[in-house]
Each structure stands twice: as structure tokens, then as C-alpha cells.
Design a protein around this nucleic acid. Structure first.
Lengths: 113, 113
DNA sequence: TTAATATTCAACCATTTGGTTGACTATAGA
DNA sequence: TCTATAGTCAACCAAATGGTTGAATATTAA
């Protein structure tokens, strides 16, 4: 069974609950980036972006390596997987409906003939 | 392509970022429940639980029907699916591990029989 | 050594959050 | 009709959030 640590999930989902941070993740999914590079697309101070990055880091959604004065961030997909796993427990609820829908469509098609 | 509405995702992930609300979703996944039934397991006032329910409702993670004085809540899995879909974009980053997990689940299920 | 660059830190601020309590509304049952 | 039950609402509070600015730190380049 997958362990669903509550504190971790709090941090992860909270980090994902902000459009800026979700976009940062998207950016990192293309390529690793420095703090300044991550901040550039957003209409806010570097300090504000730095705070967002810290939130993502605390949730372990991203990781940082420091080389000299530049901090490079990369995505940490294992943590995204944790969120996904929590949600997957409920997948049956929407796949069920999907199956139902499919069988309804089949029935409808049979009636056509 | 899946539409990822930012405001919706803000509400959805924010709603999921609280252990009480995640547990409420788990409870509803077993069976639909009234507001009082949902509040009972938690060490907080009914008013506090009612607020949590409203957060879940606003995010459309649950739906409510009112009959007389009792409000019945049920899970709205389509919205959970939206969160899942956002995450699935990054699935490729962990797909190796995901495959492993799937095979573990399969093994576990076989053991059950 | 001096200046520029990359980034964080600290203090501040308005807003949101998650809880409380007490009053209120509406329905159901005696 | 009177009372209990189901639930919300409003006011309040402390803590957290998301932003700002200005100063501090550390590294690199001139």
C-alpha cells in the first residue's frame, strides 16, 4: 500500500494551489532553471519568486543545487507522484462513470439497429 | 487536450491541502453523508466542519442536496479527475516508478485471493 | 580592491485561513 | 404549539499567505 503522509500531502497540495507555482513546475518540466530564470516570466519581485521557490522546495516538488552564487532548480517528480497516488485511490469513481457511460452508448447504438 | 483552468485548480488543490478535508473526501468515497455525519469524526465545532464542507463544495469536489433540514453530501469525482489530469502531464517523469507501483498493486491483489 | 551579479533575509502589510462562540433559520416530531 | 434537531451566519481571533522594499551575503569579474 502507498503511504499517504498527511503533512507531506498538506505541503504538496498547498504548493500546487497557486498558479505561479504550478507554472514554475511546468517551466522546470521543460528544463532545469536558475532562480532568476524562474522568476523572470512573472510580474513580481525576485524576492517574491524566491519565496514561491522555497514553498515548492519545502514540499519537495523541486530540488535545488547551489554552484557558486547560482541556484539551479529541477523538478522532483517523485513528489508529484505522491499527489497523483493519493488521487488515484478515487480513480474508480470517475472510471466507473466512464464505464457506465460507455455501456449506455453501446445500448443506444444497439437500439439504432 | 485537457483544459486546465487556473482558478479551478487553485480551488481544487487548496481544498485538498488540508487533512480534514482530504479525510472528508475519503469518508464520502465510502458513502454519501449528511453535514453532521461528516463533522462527527473531527475534533472541531459543527460550524468549523461546515466551513470545510463549503470549501470542498466551492471547489466542486463534493455536491450537496438539501432535503428538509438535512444536507446530504456526495463526492464529485469529475473534479478529482481534473486534479489528476493536471498531474498526469508530468507522469512521464515518474512513469518508471509508476510501473513498478502498478505491478506491486497487482501482486498484492493476487495475494488477496 | 572594487563593482556587478545572484540570491536571501528581515520587516512590514493586507488578505485569507481555520478555528471559536452565540445567535439565527428552518424543518420535524411530540 | 412547543421543542428538539440540522445547519448556517456573523463576529471575532491568531496564524499563515503572498506580496512589497531595502539591506545583507556571497560569488564572480574587472
Amino acid at each position: 500500500m502507498v503511504e499517504h503522509n498527511n503533512e507531506n500531502l498538506d505541503l504538496i497540495f498547498h504548493a500546487l494551489a497557486d498558479a505561479t507555482r504550478r507554472e514554475m513546475i511546468r517551466l522546470l518540466s521543460e528544463k532545469e532553471k536558475t532562480v532568476s530564470e524562474m522568476a523572470k516570466p512573472f510580474d513580481m519581485s525576485l524576492a517574491a519568486a524566491s519565496k514561491h521557490i522555497k514553498v515548492l522546495e519545502k514540499a519537495r516538488l523541486i530540488q535545488r543545487t547551489v554552484e557558486g552564487r547560482t541556484h539551479t532548480c529541477r523538478i522532483n517528480a517523485e513528489t508529484l507522484a505522491l499527489a497523483s497516488q493519493w488521487l488515484s485511490v478515487y480513480e474508480k469513481f470517475w472510471s466507473k462513470r466512464f464505464d457506465l457511460m460507455e455501456s449506455e452508448i453501446l445500448k443506444a447504438k444497439k437500439k439504432e439497429h
